[in-house]
Design a protein around this nucleic acid. Structure first.
Length: 449
RNA sequence: GUGGUUGUAGCUCAGUUGGUUAGAGCGCUGGAUUGUGGUUCCAGAGGUCGCCGGUUCAAAUCCGGUCUUCCACCCCA
């Protein structure tokens, strides 16, 4: 048979994995510096944990795991008869692949509430799965790196999370824009326009401003049955670029005022930090997931055509659905694979991101091959990563392997070297070759590593 | 989920209105060079033309289906 892998999934070779590890390490280092602790959760969750958390579209994108055994016999026979897939699902699938890391985290917090300290600061870097139609930067299996704080209402957390964004992308040399808004400000806009009941329709429309422009947004609002007078108000508000300009619109909206107040408090903390990247208030930022209730964030890479590479915000009561009321959380997510794609496109990989082979031994004949093997063990005992070409074949072939492995040094051993104990150490990049004893070689490689 | 797009050697791609044995560059293997890689020269291997079916004397080429890729929606990381 011809081998293949499912759509939207990828294999990663040594080159990719080395680079992915560099990216993991860079992100993790910042998470740890800010005091976050790692957790991991299973790839599968009970389907009941996942369904209904991401809206109707999200539910459709959930990968469901078929029950084992004779699942059709136990299936809902009515639904089966009627070919009603939606109704059938719950009787033939009790598990699903996780869709993000936030909902499993909420489940984790509730299940382990007696074992974890609050506020609980956790990070998590694991794959998630979505049955989306793949495109560039859009996969069915991809990794998210999440940091969340649960059990603290302080806006200091928001400030720290944006700092984490800034530091990670600074360390990666990837210039980004971090957009900040607040869900309560959006509610205030709906208030000001007198359409509080059409809040969702309004946010969906204005979220598209970047893409379809002001006229497009107005059309979209009309399509969603929003009145002309409300559209006028919304249009005026969308021109706003600072919090102060926004205030007059919210004179009668308590929630709007609260939103502005939260953003001001956020800045009170955040402005003490010197950011490398652009951090800007953006009234049009809405973000889809409906569980956000406070500040919201989104990260856009500069100079790459790519969807958002990160997003997050505050949710006042995410653990509520699992029976733990009144616990607030705030968190942000890094779109690992999209960031990888950006770094790839902009060629931002550090030169040493690949774990290169330090030293490769090459031998001319069987006798020197065994001799080289003894040398190899001494070198490894000193902690230097090294290999011996497994057979004393033609030197050209062995040298070629050294090139392919990107070996930094080779040591060539034949009868002469065995007799004198002086080994030829060759630096592959320069071609320079000098004779040393094995001890000298070990010292030299330890020094410059 | 809707509409479109793509698929030919390991990789990047040619391939005429349907017409002999499907090509190139790079890579790979061997040799020039019996103790030294990246350059050069020579030779060689490697393809069920994504898959299944149809039309035809004849299909990489036309038609249908399917899978995959990418794009626009939708949504999002």
């Amino acid at each position: 048979m011809k081998p293949s892998i499912p759509k939207g999934t990828r294999d990663f070779g040594p080159r990719e994995v080395n680079r992915r590890n560099y990216l993991f390490d860079t992100i993790r280092k910042v998470f740890v510096k800010y005091g976050f602790q790692p957790i991991e959760t299973p790839s599968m969750e009970d389907l009941s944990t996942l369904t209904g958390k991401y809206g109707d579209e999200g539910d459709q994108l959930l990968f469901k795991v078929l029950n084992n055994g004779d699942f059709l016999r136990k299936a809902d026979q009515e639904a089966l008869e009627a070919k009603d897939s939606a109704a059938l699902v719950s009787s033939i699938s009790k598990r699903g692949m996780r869709y993000d890391l936030t909902v499993p985290f909420a489940r984790f917090v509730v299940m382990h509430q007696n074992d974890i300290p609050f506020p609980f600061k956790r990070y998590q870097m694991q794959p998630v799965w979505r049955a989306d139609r793949p495109q560039k930067g859009r996969y069915q299996e991809f990794v998210q790196c999440d940091v969340d704080v649960v059990g603290s209402d302080s806006l200091m957390n928001e400030a720290e999370l944006v700092q984490i964004y800034d530091e990670v992308f600074r360390d990666l040399n990837l210039p980004v824009t971090i957009k900040v808004n607040n869900r309560k400000v959006l509610a205030g806009i709906a208030d000001a326009a007198g359409i509080a009941d059409q809040f969702m329709d309004m946010t969906i429309a204005i979220d598209k401003l970047d893409k379809i422009g002001m006229e497009g947004v107005k059309d979209e609002l009309r399509k969603r049955n929003i009145s002309e007078s409300a559209i006028d108000t919304i249009e005026q508000i969308l021109q706003v670029t600072t919090l102060d300009e926004l205030k007059p619109f919210f004179s009668d909206s308590e929630i709007g005022k609260k939103g502005i107040n939260e953003l001001e408090t956020f800045h009170h903390y955040f402005d003490t930090y010197e950011a490398t990247n652009t951090v800007s208030f953006d009234v049009t930022l809405a973000r889809g997931l409906n569980y956000y209730t406070g500040c919201i964030f989104e990260v856009q890479a500069e100079g790459v055509k790519m969807g958002s590479i990160g997003g997050g915000g505050r949710y006042d009561d995410l653990t509520g659905v699992f029976g733990m009321q009144g616990t607030s959380g705030v968190g942000v997510s890094f779109g690992f694979d999209r960031i990888y794609d950006c770094l790839e496109e902009l060629q931002l990989w550090p030169a040493d991101s690949a774990e290169r082979l330090k030293l490769l031994f090459l031998a001319f004949d069987p006798a020197s091959h065994t001799y080289a093997f003894r040398c190899l063990n001494q070198v490894r005992a000193a902690g230097i990563n090294a290999e011996l070409y497994p057979d004393p074949v033609k030197m050209k072939k062995q040298m070629k392997y050294a090139n392919n492995r990107n070996a930094e040094y080779v040591v060539i051993i034949g009868s002469n070297e065995m007799a004198s104990g002086q080994l030829a150490l060759k630096h592959m990049a320069t071609g320079e070759q000098t004779e040393y004893t094995l001890d000298q070689i070990i010292n030299k490689l330890i020094d410059n590593s």
